[in-house]
């Protein structure tokens, strides 16, 4: 069997003294979509940051295409095809949309031609005509879409999206679901999606992990998930 694109093996994560993730294991195969569901504070963001090595202290093994990256600095992991779109978007306010997109080109892997700002913006109708706008002039929804587009610029092997629908109007969430399907089909990137919005996650992915208090409490297909829905309900957002 070939190794999965990403494997998190038995990882613990800490912020100083507080122990947040407990023996978390997770796999994402190439070009697949995996949802990570869990309530506020369950540890979704911590797991995403642990995979990039950007924040929490991590103990355990993290493998990318079978090779350990657990001791690789975050900026190098970001250049290995792992692209994290953080939950707070982190658009640079002082430069234009085009420059925000262009800045991510440097994260493309060796031999991979990054998307141009125009190409990335063209993936999302909401960004049309905004390339010359400054970051601080965008609405929250526009910033979120821009953050996702920026995540796609380096043509990642794995896109890690941290709660992209949080705070967005339902109509924009619908749009984004449709765009994500299209973009994944085009780019062949795998997706790890942290979400509380179950229907959005279902639309974008093929399998599910549920995390609670820093422990994985379920893993399986969406069919398995539905079969266990009664048991899982208490781990999901109310």
């Amino acid at each position: 069997m070939t190794s999965p694109l990403l494997e998190v093996r038995d990882c613990d994560a800490f912020y100083d003294d507080s122990h947040v993730l407990h023996a978390v294991s997770l796999r994402v195969a190439a070009a697949t979509g995996v949802a990570l569901l869990g309530r506020n504070g369950a540890g979704k963001s911590t797991l995403m940051k642990s995979i990039l090595g950007a924040g929490p202290t991590v103990r355990g093994e993290i493998l990318l295409e079978g090779r350990s990256i657990a001791r690789t600095p975050a900026y190098l992991r970001a250049g290995m095809g792992l692209s994290l779109v953080p939950e707070d978007r982190r658009i640079f306010p002082h430069v234009t949309v085009a420059e925000n997109l262009a800045m991510a080109r440097r994260a493309a892997r060796q031999g991979v031609e990054a998307l141009t700002p125009a190409e990335a913006a063209a993936l999302f109708p909401m960004l049309e005509g905004l390339l010359d706008r400054k970051g601080y002039q965008l609405s929250g929804g526009q910033q979120q879409i821009l953050a996702v587009a920026r995540g796609l610029v380096p043509r990642p092997q794995l896109l890690l999206l941290d709660e992209p629908t949080e705070g967005l109007a339902p109509i924009i969430v619908q749009d984004m679901a449709a765009q994500m399907t299209k973009v994944r089909a085009q780019s062949g990137a795998a997706l790890l999606l942290a979400e509380q919005n179950v229907s959005f996650a279902r639309h974008c992915t093929e399998s599910v992990f549920v995390i609670d208090s820093g422990r994985i409490v379920f893993e399986g297909s969406w069919t398995d998930f539905d079969a266990n829905r009664a048991r899982l309900e208490r781990f999901l957002a109310v």
Binding site: A54, L84, A107
Partner: peptide, 21 residues
């Protein structure tokens, strides 16, 4: 220089864009 500015504003996000802060 643009990288210097990006790091001044948000070193964490700059790292995620593969900038060696």
């Amino acid at each position: 220089g643009k990288l210097v500015q990006a790091v001044a504003i948000d070193p964490w996000m700059a790292t995620l864009l593969s900038v060696n802060v």
